[in-house]
Design a binder for these strands. Structure first.
Length: 964
RNA sequence: GGGCGAGUGGCGGAAUGGUAGACGCGCUAGACUCAAAAUCUGGUAUUCGCAAGGAUGUGGGGGUUCGAGUCCCCCCUUGCCCACCA
């Protein structure tokens, strides 16, 4: 018998596939349905990939291999993210030019990917740093420019003083530079932007319908961050101009007690008077010097100064002081807010610090006015408990706990019930402390111990029962006057359960309770309006609309939608990127380089490192910078910034479809057939890259260059594999595992691949287990031996029962694996194949193995469904079985449902929901028969006894539950 | 602080509301061997019992259901993303 030697057969078949162009796709071949799958392209930074990356790349490989076997023309491209900061920084680190550093690093990437046996079409490789590629990136820039979606604007940008360079948002981690770890600041520079906000609404609305991993969709929606609210105009006393604020809570407009402007707000300097000017100027200057990070790190202590001016609240004519405060962000909304300290935490903190009025306008009473509570305390919409006390003589209430911590009270009391009298007292003391901390006013002291001891003396599992009993008893005692002590107070511990325990609070009482609360706490939610003139009594949601309507009639406000997402800043003052194809002419301003002069080649420079200042190294290449204006021929200068690396990777999936086209970026006809990407996966870039790609795709769609507005039909966001120590695998931690190392130690690519898929479901982080690959190797070795024994054996006559047994297994796993691959459940696909192989071994031991219809189908179907996971061993065995073609094209087994229906089934017999017996019966058995069999069963009898079943649940083919 | 997930043996994990712990790792006993490795066979949640079998058991507390790891409510722990976004 031949031994399984992965090293030998993997090398052999990789060579054969390359020579035969097995995975090469002919775009013009439309004879089969198309399937286009890919993983996010790797950034080339030298280390090569580790086993965590390997897993990511494999998901698309399995999808594409399965489809290829199922008769699709399946395309699996590969390319390199070659431009951008990571590559340039890597080059700086190793002291080589980026081009050289990149090309050298790429060698190892390719070696790794090839050895892992991914079925890429290597003939269509793409690199974002090739002039043939970035020519079209620049062309896209021109298109965006021509359509008003690329523009220049003065804007503050992250700046690292240590590295003397600007940083992209994503390169700032927690306020620190990703490279040197020092704090970053902001610097005001003229920058290029792409107007992604133009598509914010469109993308947001399309997000829900995408067949993408939910988490990614949520992150994208949060990032776009749409808020619907209103813009309200405030007149400034003694001036003609207005302050416009944005708010999502126009229903709190009557509660505004001051206006706050961002220090960068243009009106600030005009609003100061002689008295305040010095303070205001100082504050603005100070804020500008502070980085945003510093602002955040100051423990959110609010700062600000009064400008000396006042604004008029359009709804009630109140005079509101105008402040400057850096907690107001210049970049969001209008850079100005109306502050409602009674209902906004930040405004509240500010108002308290500077002693500004706080005016409550919302009563957070959750009473549905259309359906007022009849005889229940329905204010708290949860099945939980409220502890409060009431003084009947004054009608006053106090809550001891409420809202989110309500359950804390019940838990504490339950603790008292369960433990002892002592702990009951302790628990109740805790509640009192908590009440004091929460600022709740205790109107009258209650004899807590009485209540707690009652609970403690009535131990029971059922909280509700205790509550009922206690209520009854207290009521009873009360009526008899025994609980009313000398101080004539009435103590009640009321358990509130929405459905069950009705207490006796009227809506008026509920309001009273809330009012007591409101004196001490901030109401940030919704409720009923008070102190709001004609809008009093309205619910927030209605008041919002009515107030905006009213403002609109007065011409002082309107509905407004804002987004957190900002336009995409693409300028990089760095060398290693696609040059922005712009020429600055003294007369014509920014003029795009004509399409027929593209690409603007990135010149080779010796010193590419950022010098600080505000330009890239390109600024020093005089003969490159100094050119003539394309419009008038006047001496002009090239733009010396390069484009963000994300720009280069926002359209590569289109270039994959036409990588050698020198007439256009891609042929729309090819895209029409092959687009969009059917399956896309990655473990990173959940927000930026995917949003940018969607933005460009929508733009191309409007231009008629592509056939759909969304680039990725299905997007799978997989989790990382962690290092064995449970931390993230990273080069800096030194805990990465090189796939080459594992393959070279004799296990080969197939074992590694199988383990990578078996380790955990795709969306779960799991630590790498060094013993895992040997486990996968054992499985493949068992497959190998099984196939070898079959190949070497002669004819074998099996009786029908055994034939069927084998065939049933083969059909079962074929169905299971087919469906699991479709549903991205790769780990269970493998475990079911392991199970099947174990079953085959048992049958083989008992009945032998040899040439027969059943064994033939079992072996061949197993190899076919295993092929996407372990392509080499399956190809080798397929070949040894005598096939001259490859198993990887057009070979997928079919299952027949008739083998999946057993004649006998195991029925689980339960008594009161507990398993008491299992019966093997014919699948056609009637309910009456199975009931009789069950009731005759000895073990069932002991649990049913003489009792008569009150109910029998029968799930045909599965289970019988006898309820007695 | 906000949003979204997750919590099941010693470990990774499995389970359309219907037999919890598949499959693998590890551990363990045995077979083969002079021996070891490799391989094969059996065992492996806790607990009571000679056994048959019983009781308990999916972070904690409640609920819905004939039946809950799964659905609902609250709490705890943990991961990721965003974070003074009005």
């Amino acid at each position: 018998m031949k031994r399984y030697n992965p090293t030998e057969i993997e090398k052999k078949w990789q060579q054969v596939w390359e020579e035969n162009n097995t995975y090469k796709v002919d775009f013009s071949d439309h004879s089969k349905p198309k399937y286009y799958a890919m993983s996010m392209l790797p950034g080339i930074t030298g280390a090569g990939i580790h086993t965590g990356h390997g897993r990511t790349f494999q998901f698309s490989d399995i999808k594409v291999r399965a489809k290829r076997q199922q008769g699709y023309n399946a395309y699996h491209p590969i390319g390199w993210d070659s431009f951008g900061l990571p590559v340039e920084n890597y080059a700086i680190k190793i002291g080589k030019k980026p081009r050289i550093a990149h090309d050298e690093a790429l060698v190892n990437f390719k070696r790794q990917l090839k050895r892992l046996g991914y079925s890429y079409d290597w003939s269509k490789e793409v690199s974002t740093a090739d002039p043939e590629y970035y020519k079209w990136t620049q062309w896209i820039f021109n298109q965006l420019f021509a359509h008003g979606l690329a523009y220049q604007k003065q804007s503050p940008q992250w700046w690292c003083e240590t590295d003397q360079t600007v940083l992209a948002n994503e390169q700032v981690e927690g306020g620190k530079c990703w490279r040197c770890g020092n704090q970053v600041t902001k610097k005001n520079l003229k920058q290029w932007f792409f107007k992604i906000t133009e598509y914010a609404d469109e993308m947001l609305e399309a997000t829900d319908d995408l067949d993408w991993t939910e988490m990614v969709k949520t992150m994208q929606k949060n990032w776009i961050g749409r808020s619907v609210g209103a813009e309200v105009e405030f007149k400034i006393i003694g001036r003609d101009d207005l302050i416009t604020v944005f708010t999502t809570r126009p229903d709190t407009l009557f509660g505004a007690t001051f206006i706050a402007l961002a220090p960068e707000h243009e009106l600030v300097k005009n609003l100061a008077n002689d008295k305040t000017r010095q303070a205001v100027d100082d504050y603005v200057l100070q804020s500008a010097r502070k980085s945003e990070i510093e602002r955040m790190n100051e423990n959110r202590e609010k700062t600000g100064v009064f400008t000396g001016s006042y604004a008029i609240n359009p709804v009630n004519g109140e005079k509101l002081p105008i402040w400057v405060a850096d907690y107001v962000l210049a970049g969001y909304g209008t850079g100005a807010i109306m502050a409602v300290p009674a209902h906004d935490e930040r405004d509240n903190a500010f108002a308290k610090k500077f002693d500004i009025a706080i005016k409550q306008v919302i009563m957070p009473c959750e009473i549905d006015q259309n359906n007022p509570p009849q005889d229940g305390f329905d204010m708290v919409e949860r099945d939980t408990v409220v502890v409060h006390l009431m003084d009947k003589s004054t009608g006053q209430f106090a809550l001891l706990d409420w809202h989110g911590t309500l359950d804390g009270v019940s838990t504490a009391i339950m603790g008292g019930i369960e433990d002892s009298q002592t702990s009951a007292e302790a628990a109740l003391n805790e509640i009192k402390e908590e009440a004091a901390l929460g600022g709740v006013k205790i109107v009258k002291e209650l004899d807590w111990t009485t209540a707690a001891l009652y609970c403690a003396s009535h131990k029971s599992q059922n909280r509700k029962a205790i509550a009922r009993a206690f209520l009854a008893e207290v009521d009873n005692l009360d009526n008899q006057g025994t609980i009313s002590d000398a101080e004539s107070k009435i103590h009640k511990l009321i358990w509130v359960d929405k459905k069950d325990v009705a207490t006796h609070l009227t809506p008026a009482h509920q309001k009273l309770v809330w009012q007591l609360l409101n004196e001490n706490s901030l109401i940030s939610g919704e409720g009923e309006l008070i102190n709001s003139g004609t809008f009093d009594g309205m619910q927030s949601s209605e008041a919002r609309e009515q107030i905006v309507d009213w403002l609109e009639q007065q011409g002082t406000g309107h509905i407004k939608t804002t987004y957190k997402m900002r336009d995409w800043l693409i300028s990089r003052q760095r060398y290693w990127g696609a040059p922005i194809p712009i020429i600055h002419c003294p007369d014509h301003g920014a003029v795009p380089v004509p399409d027929n002069q593209l690409p603007v080649i990135l010149p080779d420079v010796d010193d590419f490192k950022p010098k600080g200042g505000e330009t890239s190294a390109l600024a020093s290449v005089a003969d490159w910078v100094n050119v003539e204006c394309p419009l008038c021929g006047k001496p002009s200068k090239r733009e010396t910034d390069t484009m963000d690396g994300y720009a280069c990777s926002s359209w590569y999936f289109l270039r994959y479809l036409d990588p050698f086209n020198d007439k256009q970026a891609w042929d729309p006809e090819v895209e029409k057939h092959w687009g969009p990407v059917d399956f896309y996966n990655g473990a990173d870039h959940a927000v930026a890259h995917l949003l940018y790609s969607r933005f460009w795709m929508r733009f191309f769609y409007k231009l008629g260059l592509v056939s759909t507005p969304e680039p990725f039909k299905r997007m799978m966001y997989n989790a990382y594999i962690l290092a064995p120590d449970g931390t993230k695998m990273s080069k800096s931690r030194g805990n990465t595992i090189d796939p080459l190392e594992i393959m070279d130690s004799g296990y080969g690519a197939d074992s590694l691949r199988v383990y990578e898929m078996f380790i955990a479901p795709y969306d779960l982080e799991a630590p790498w287990d060094t013993r895992g690959v040997p486990g996968a190797y054992r499985f493949l070795n068992r497959v190998w031996k099984l196939a070898q024994e079959y190949i070497e054996a002669g004819d074998l006559n099996l009786d029908d029962k055994v034939q069927t047994e084998i065939t049933v297994i083969a059909n079962r796993i074929t169905k299971k694996v087919t469906e699991d691959i479709l549903n991205d459940k790769f780990n269970t696909a493998i475990s079911s194949m392991m199970e099947a192989v174990n079953d085959y071994y048992k049958i083989k031991e008992k009945n032998g193995i040899g040439k027969s219809t059943a064994w033939s189908f079992a072996i061949e179907s197993l190899l076919q469904i295993l092929a996407p996971f372990a392509p080499h061993i399956t190809e080798e065995l397929w070949n040894q079985l005598g096939h001259s073609d490859t198993v990887h094209i057009d070979h997928w087994p079919k299952w027949d449902d008739k083998y999946l229906q057993n004649d006998t089934v195991t029925i689980v017999i339960q008594v009161n929901g507990k398993l008491r017996a299992k019966l093997d019966v014919s699948k056609n058995i009637s309910q009456i028969e199975i009931e009789q069999l069950a009731l005759d069963n000895d073990n069932v009898k002991t649990f049913v006894g003489d009792k008569k079943p009150t109910k029998i649940i029968y799930v045909p083919g599965r289970l019988l539950n006898i309820v007695v």
